[in-house]
Design a protein around this nucleic acid. Structure first.
Length: 603
RNA sequence: GUAUAUGUAGCUCAGAGGAUAGAGCAACCGCCUCCUAAGCGGUAGGCCGGGGGUUCGACUCCCCCCAUGUACACCA
């Protein structure tokens, strides 16, 4: 049941002449629980009704005198505060979650839509560094969220697999590398060669010409050059897929990188020329964007070579033709804002109305306390190092706090990843972040491990309870039941309480009147709002909305946990609280899953 | 210079027309014979960058200013 909607309907009915759609957006949750569960400010009605807001609130409150939905509707100045019938509220929310399990909140609001999301897109032959994390984890989270809401979403990794760096790499390989070392060292060795090239080129500029020469050879289909290029690609992509992406639980539907459009860019230039959009300037070919307040978009270099915008336009045309997307999302750093604005405009000028469906989702920049770092000089914080440190620290904490834990390494991996991923999903994506090891490895407070810990707490209660408790029915509806992984209600039988416990809980007889305390109420209110948070997250392309909702849920649940003993003697109270614990655990697991984070049952 | 983003507690950030502006970290004081203390409670900490305007009401919307980041022609 959508409580806001129910209240809006009733207000509309009682007023008689104001449609629900005018009321609903006004319904809010009061800042303080003592003020009620929902509130309706009456200011806006005062014009149309020609009464003071306070009088409207007063009069409306009377119409709610005998409403089973509410305990009371109390006017407070211009506000009308609604106190929900608490057991009804608890029951509706809990039943909804039990019915849907980890799919709670999935409502198909995007079904029938096809979205493309272009994210991560590392440069081949270079290792991931911390600068790659935001686009990678934000893209993945958005991918999951849209899919969850029924969207047919397709992920594309637009790999940087073409360009001058390959000329340099070939030169470096031929001078200072060998097959065995590259096979053994992988991307790290390619990176070493790349850095070596720049060191050497400082004193020997001729190397740069040599590198350009190799790029030209690649462009002309030279066999040796292309074989090396392909080899570097294979090595890099293999490593990305089997290491970084695998650890993060990410895969892409397509790994069509820049080189894929090599033979498609001539068409773009030709079409622009046919449509009289192309103009010569200073030897280069441009599209003039002066009328739109932007510098010109460069399409062809003076030497006829293509440029970044040429390739992106070509890719967009190809994607539209191939996938027929409703929207195509590009998740990159905001330093590319102008670039995207320019070529989006060019696509529009070519007569494509769908240019409005190209959406750049800009991300803030990452700064380093030690100043700007550069891949070319090899001064970077490698993502692998960060992930490994996070896991190692987690492992130490486990050793200290929970030395009896089984699968310590496995759990440390989950929690370490969770810490890194979560911290990159916790703020508005536009915010610049300055990287600090201390913050990156913080496992307290608003952090991934905090959410995972709270989930483990809930799981632990359910596990202990499975021996004590009622009998019952299947609760979830999710297909894959991996007993070892879910540790959910059905899987667990507490050893110390004997083996004949029921396999499952039966929440059908629960008396929700046992969940009317302030702590339960707060948890329920957050659970109630959760589905809307997921939708907001999609609509605004902001995963932090979901991360923050999970943190709020954890804070409320931990307060509840501290104030209320779940496994009490009183079976009625115990069962009701267990139902709530089950719901919290389910939502945390689902929410973390959408963010791309695993939810261990113990840690 | 032009464009754009950001200025909220010591630090990192939520709040984006509505009631007394909230978290986490750091500081200080408490809470484990009790379901995981990676937790919970408390204290302290604010001219919401500045100035105008719109509104019954502005941290929130508009304008101007200040500060900071970023981009701006043949790299991607």
């Amino acid at each position: 049941m959508n409580f806001k909607l129910e209240i809006a309907k009733r207000i509309s009915e009682h007023l008689g002449n104001v449609p629900v759609s005018d009321i609903l957006p006004g319904i809010e949750v009061p800042p303080n629980p003592e003020m009620g569960d929902f509130a309706f400010p009456c200011f806006k009605l005062s014009k149309t009704l020609k009464k003071s807001p306070a009088i409207i609130a007063e009069q409306l409150s009377a119409s709610f005198a005998n409403d089973a939905l509410l305990e009371k509707a109390q006017p407070a100045g211009a506000y009308l505060n609604f106190f929900i019938n608490k057991s009804l509220y608890a029951g509706e929310i809990i039943k909804e979650i039990i019915k849907n399990g980890v799919n709670y909140g999935a409502d198909n609001s995007y079904s029938g839509k096809r979205y493309l999301v272009d994210y991560s897109s590392p440069n081949i032959a270079k290792p991931f560094h911390v600068g790659h994390i935001p686009t990678t984890v934000i893209g993945h989270a958005l991918y999951n969220v849209f899919k969850f809401l029924g969207c047919d979403i397709i992920s594309i990794n637009h790999l940087g697999d073409w360009g001058t760096q390959f000329g340099k790499l070939i030169v470096a390989y031929k001078n200072w590398g060998n097959e065995a070392d590259v096979k053994k060292g992988g991307v790290a060795e390619l990176m070493r060669l790349y850095v070596k090239f720049h060191d050497e080129a400082e004193n020997n500029p001729a190397l740069n010409d040599e590198a350009r020469g190799w790029l030209v050879k690649m462009e002309h289909g030279d066999e040796e050059a292309l074989a090396l290029w392909k080899w570097f690609n294979d090595i890099s992509l293999d490593e990305y897929k089997n290491n970084t992406y695998k650890r993060l639980g990410i895969d892409f539907d397509y790994y069509t990188g820049e080189s894929f459009y090599n033979d498609k860019m001539a068409d773009v230039a030709r079409e622009l020329k046919e449509k009289n959009l192309l103009k010569e300037s200073d030897g280069a070919m441009i599209v003039d964007l002066e009328n739109w307040g932007m510098p010109p978009c460069l399409i062809l270099r003076r030497d006829g070579g293509t440029l970044y915008p040429t390739r992106d336009i070509s890719a967009a045309l190809y994607r539209k033709k191939t996938f027929g997307f409703d929207k195509c999302l590009y998740i990159t750093c905001m330093d590319q804002n102008l670039h995207f604005a320019q070529w989006f405009k060019v696509v529009e000028l070519m007569g494509n109305t769908w240019a409005q469906d190209l959406i750049h989702i800009p991300l803030g920049l990452i700064n380093f306390e030690e100043g700007k770092l550069s891949t070319r000089k090899g001064h970077v914080i490698l993502l692998d190092d960060l992930l490994n440190d996070a896991v190692k620290k987690t492992r130490d904490i486990i050793e200290e706090k929970n030395p009896c834990l089984k699968n310590k390494d496995e759990i440390a991996e989950m929690v370490g990843m969770g810490a890194v991923v979560f911290s990159n999903l916790y703020n508005s994506r536009i915010k610049d972040v300055s990287f600090s090891w201390e913050r990156a490895l913080s496992f307290e407070g608003e952090s991934g491990p905090y959410v995972q810990y709270t989930h483990a707490r809930a799981a632990s209660i359910l596990k202990k309870a499975s021996g004590l408790c009622a009998t019952g029915a299947e609760t979830g509806g999710n297909g894959e039941s991996d007993a070892q992984e879910t540790g959910s209600i059905e899987a667990s039988v507490s050893p110390e309480t004997g083996g004949n416990a029921a396999k499952d809980f039966n929440f059908s007889g629960v008396d929700f009147a046992n969940l009317t305390d302030e702590y339960s109420r707060e948890v329920l209110s957050i659970l109630d709002a959760y589905p809307q948070k997921i939708k907001d997250c999609a609509e605004k392309f902001e995963p932090f909305i979901l991360s923050r909702a999970l943190i709020e849920l954890c804070q409320a649940f931990n307060k509840f946990y501290n104030a209320n003993i779940v496994l009490t003697e009183d079976a009625a109270v115990r069962n009701a609280r267990l139902a709530l614990v089950y719901c919290v655990k389910t939502v945390l697991e689902a929410g973390l899953g959408l963010l791309g984070i695993k939810a261990p049952d113990e840690m």
